[in-house]
């Protein structure tokens, strides 16, 4: 979208609004609000923000082992001596690694797919970091792969597809339990979630 129709807006400001508008989840109104906020921001803060954006682009790379975003490859997680190298957790996005790390329950390694198989959008297995994962598992000591893709249609399809590929390679393949979220309400659960939660019930 261009702001040519707004002659009252100074050109640099119009450009900034346009750039913000390209970001995910930012509509034209929000883009304007952010741009006007930046104008009132102290110069050093604006510099620091601009630098942070550049640093992300210049210093961040992908770990050649787990494909996660990192400053140095292999990333700290992959090179750490304290991680359990017999377990590999496969996730959709880098943010999922952060979420799982926050639990402090999992001590193994990760592999980031950078997406999910989405047939309707034309995203197939070849568009994900699946080949890299298979390479990694060859002649490796991994005993368990945990498929931690989302319990969505695409996430499930991706897990099923990877499961097939891994069967001859890994002794144990597991899937994150699927069921009700904490603070959720039975009344509002759908039948697929409920039936899975029922099957995954545990002794108490």
């Amino acid at each position: 979208m261009t702001y040519d129709f707004l002659p009252s807006v100074a050109a640099p400001l119009a450009r900034l609004i346009e750039e913000f508008h390209k970001l995910p989840g930012i509509g034209p109104k929000t883009a304007q609000r952010l741009a006007y906020y930046l104008i009132r921001m102290p110069a050093e803060e604006a510099h620091s923000l601009a630098e942070a954006i550049l640093a992300v682009k210049e210093r961040i790379t992908f770990c050649t082992v787990c494909q996660n975003i990192t400053e140095s490859s292999p990333c700290p997680l992959c090179s750490s001596q304290s991680r359990d190298r017999s377990r590999l957790c496969v996730v959709e996005e880098p943010l999922d690694v952060l979420s799982l790390e926050r639990t402090r329950v999992y001590k193994g390694l990760y592999h980031v797919l950078h997406g999910v198989i989405s047939p309707a959008s034309g995203i197939g297995p070849e568009n994900l970091k699946i080949r890299e994962m298979l390479e990694r598992l060859k002649g490796n000591e991994v005993e368990e792969v945990i498929l931690a893709t989302n319990p969505s249609l695409e996430g499930e399809s991706t897990a099923m597809y990877i499961h097939r590929l891994l069967l001859p390679l890994v002794p144990r393949i597991t899937r994150l339990a699927r069921g009700l979220p904490v603070g959720g309400d039975l009344e509002y659960a759908d039948e697929v979630t409920l039936s899975r939660a029922l099957e995954g019930r545990q002794e108490m």
Binding site: P119, A120, E156, R164, E191, V192
Partner: peptide, 23 residues
């Protein structure tokens, strides 16, 4: 949800066919 088609969802061949039909 009235029908979740769970068998379809949990089988790669079936779910690919269903997604094809939907598209």
């Amino acid at each position: 949800a009235l029908e979740g088609f769970r068998t379809v969802r949990e089988d790669l061949q079936r779910v690919s066919q269903a997604l094809c039909m939907a598209e």
